[in-house]
Amino acid sequence: MIVPWLKGILGWNVSPLAWTLVALNVFVFVMTLEPAPWNKTRAFQNAESLYLTGHLYYQYRGGEGLPERDKLALLGASALRDIKFMNQAEKMEFKGDAIAIEKWKTDLVSFRETLSGRLTKIFGLSFDDERPLSMITYQFMHAGMIHLLSNMMMLIIFAVAVEAQLGGLLLIFVYLAGGVAGAYGFKILGQSTLAPMIGASGSLSALIAFYAVFEKKKRVSFFYFLSPFKGYYGWIYLPTYLIFPLLFVSDLAAYFGTSVEIGSGVAYTAHLGGMIFGIVFGLIMRVWKHYGGINFVFSSK
């Protein structure tokens, strides 16, 4: 196990806004906690249903005859990511097993209703979402305990570091603007999907990238633990640029390595959007600092 950890600056009085951000995320998570409708969505997303969806999507795309059997499930998965198709398929005419098609249409309507009533859909960022406010609200929502914990662990480390170095105002700006950049990354680079995006990871990527660029000469302390024997645990100080292969390259690899048909549960494009913002903003601030224009930010500390 190896985790970055910042020693000595984690106190509430040193970085109150960083802690407030974490508290706000936890508060929103608790308030928006709702059981996952597995029984309703799984029935629609099982293998049998995916094959059927594949047949229908093939017809919708103007295919003739029968597609390769191997491709049916993938076509079905692609259909689930095609918002236009999924929003109007029940009104379309299809050829084939009429009984199964009727049932599929009923299931589709029920599936959509289930999704639309969920808080993640209301406050999250959907691919076809036009509401500007959802670009902010999605940053404070989380899908589950593991999602929240992993994001908050990294957030507290880097938010505290940024606040301690540059002040609370800048922290809030990077968090929110990074989240908005993440939202654009999701919409521009991402693959169309019915599932809404939620989570602070876009903002978090922006914060990490910003810190790594702005404080490039700094070393980040990492705590490692292999076993409780002496020599197998302790601190190691690594340069901030190590964060890039750790985060940026792995997100890029995951983005290029994820197939359009299957998709992924992680919005790598939001990470990339946030990270690009962090890098650019970090460089701007470095230049600004170089010419002495950043002093007012420090004064807010």
């Binding site: 292969p245 390259v249 792995s250 890029l252 690899a253 995951a254 290029f256 390595g257």
Partner: peptide, 11 residues
Amino acid sequence: IFSPILSLILS
């Protein structure tokens, strides 16, 4: 360090 780079190359 190298696994993300390798993943990117083999993506």
